[in-house]
Design a protein around this nucleic acid. Sequence first.
DNA 1: CTGAAAGCGCTTACAG
DNA 2: CTGAAAGCGCTTACAG
Lengths: 349, 349
Amino acid sequence: MTRRVTIADIAAAAGVSKGAVSYALNGRPGVSETTRTKILAIAAEMGFVPNRAARSLSVSSAQAVGIALRRSARTIGIEPYFMELISGIEATLSAGSFGLTLQIVGTVEEELEVYRRWWAERRVDGVFLCDVGTSDQRLDFIADLGLPAVAVGGPIEGARFPAVWHDDAEPSRDILEYLYALGHRRVARIAGIPGLLHTAIRDKAYDDTAADLAFESVTTIHSDYTGEQGAQITRRLLSSAKRPTAIVYDNDVMAVAGLGVAHELGLEIPEQLSLVAWDDSQLCRLTHPALTSLTRDIPAYGAKCAEVLMSLIGAATETALQTTETRTFSVQCKPAQLSPRGSTGPAQN
Amino acid sequence: MTRRVTIADIAAAAGVSKGAVSYALNGRPGVSETTRTKILAIAAEMGFVPNRAARSLSVSSAQAVGIALRRSARTIGIEPYFMELISGIEATLSAGSFGLTLQIVGTVEEELEVYRRWWAERRVDGVFLCDVGTSDQRLDFIADLGLPAVAVGGPIEGARFPAVWHDDAEPSRDILEYLYALGHRRVARIAGIPGLLHTAIRDKAYDDTAADLAFESVTTIHSDYTGEQGAQITRRLLSSAKRPTAIVYDNDVMAVAGLGVAHELGLEIPEQLSLVAWDDSQLCRLTHPALTSLTRDIPAYGAKCAEVLMSLIGAATETALQTTETRTFSVQCKPAQLSPRGSTGPAQN
DNA sequence: CTGAAAGCGCTTACAG
DNA sequence: CTGAAAGCGCTTACAG
């Protein structure tokens, strides 16, 4: 159990004041180049790493950001989305040697409480807001707190902090046009949670596109994103008299579950039924046939979100320095691209 | 942007010293009951939450623990295991109002560096060590640092800190006996990464059990746990002359991929091939047929790991107080149970 | 039981 | 360019 070295140790070894050590270490004026290099050498030799708490207390910054996820213990694991997002976030954070504090909560109330506590404790300098809703009390709550934040999703009208988002309307249109071109006229969509912003955006895009094309029917049924509901709703849809010839799922987990149901009912894919998934994770390539899906680069998205938050916090990460224009209030990322695979084919009515 | 209230504010409002406020808040002797209740009331009214950095600096404790995960951005999401584990860990941590710092790393060197930095910065009071290897340099590294830690996996011989683990030998035996009873005589296992401790334990258990029963062949092929390799190895196995009638997978993702390959080859499940998965996540119930698998309660496991770490750190969580005997160096959890589903059936040789 | 003071390890004006 | 000092917001011996 080695002892931790402090600036006092370095100061003593270098024969200078603690202040000088601090200036040297932080690349600030106030020390000559010779003393600076000498101090730096000694610090490196002694393996100095500054005590976070002391630094935080001095500069009033936690050197960390937080993310609160509202899911149950059982369902959180199944969505590859979050881990990929976090993974991307971290890539940017580490560059600025910021830490990520993660908290899983059960209810909105708990989530708000976490934000308040984090803010009051100064445990984090900013937060990522996930699963943005169409009318989301967390937005004002966080803004009122004065806690820097980035919404992972958008666009958000009248937002008081930046939102980083993909346009979901265009891919929604892409899917329907693609299915239409394949001859599908009865299409169903098993959508996500109705209160979520991106669900609403997709809802509207589907409706708009459907109105432009001569579909026989385009139905949307909302779900809770779980495989159970995906399976259940698929079973119901496929048991109806005029069953759809194509089903679009708002995530990958439900699509996999839907494929399971299709197998269960003995339907040939894609001959008798075409399936499309949103959020292409590795899952979509594990099944047979592989699932046609909408592909986004989630780690890159997470990295972008982190960049915006860092620049908001004013942290001097390299990336943040390069792209100070990310301070704008809405950052749009490249929309999801359709990746056609074996689960879609021409309709046989 | 409300102002954060400090103990100085409370002291002023209550007309006492900061020391008195601290004693009152921390339930220590040194203040009369009347002043204590008065101070507490004022603190509550002002919405006081202590500044973490200041507290940490004083007591030399970060009030946080860390977990470093070594995966790539693309593959980390697919394994439900980690999020479930983290979710369980958090349930215990929140009770003691400890935070969880998460870091995703690419290499062992990076991981060791993270531990050293965390320790030097005093950013965490302890860490969880995942993916324990048969010969794991991280064990001594962490122990030498004097950083409290819990190994998520074991048992570890001569360990210098506690390990929390499930017995994997018994379930391994269960699977083989079950398959044998179903009449399977050619069984293959697509195992995980060879260097991992639990892989080695399962390897031995399979070998031992196989030796006790009259199998025609029991082969083990190691993999990297990804769906790609799961699919690839399954394809190779099923294309061989004397193909196995049952395949056991060391995780769920590979099992799902294996099922996809079976479908691809037109094999009837379970008539022509039985499949078994380890680590029953929701994934196993999404497919058709649903996958027979070995079920463990991962969130509960995570909670147990956190309990042991908290007790090690000496934090006064309620759970830790109740179970101080968790300071022992090896905590065994309930082994995984076989959950038979549609993917296994009698062998048709 | 209570108050004044020192200290945790940094940063940062402020004099020399 | 350099040093001594105060301060961040807590905790905790140490006197009264």
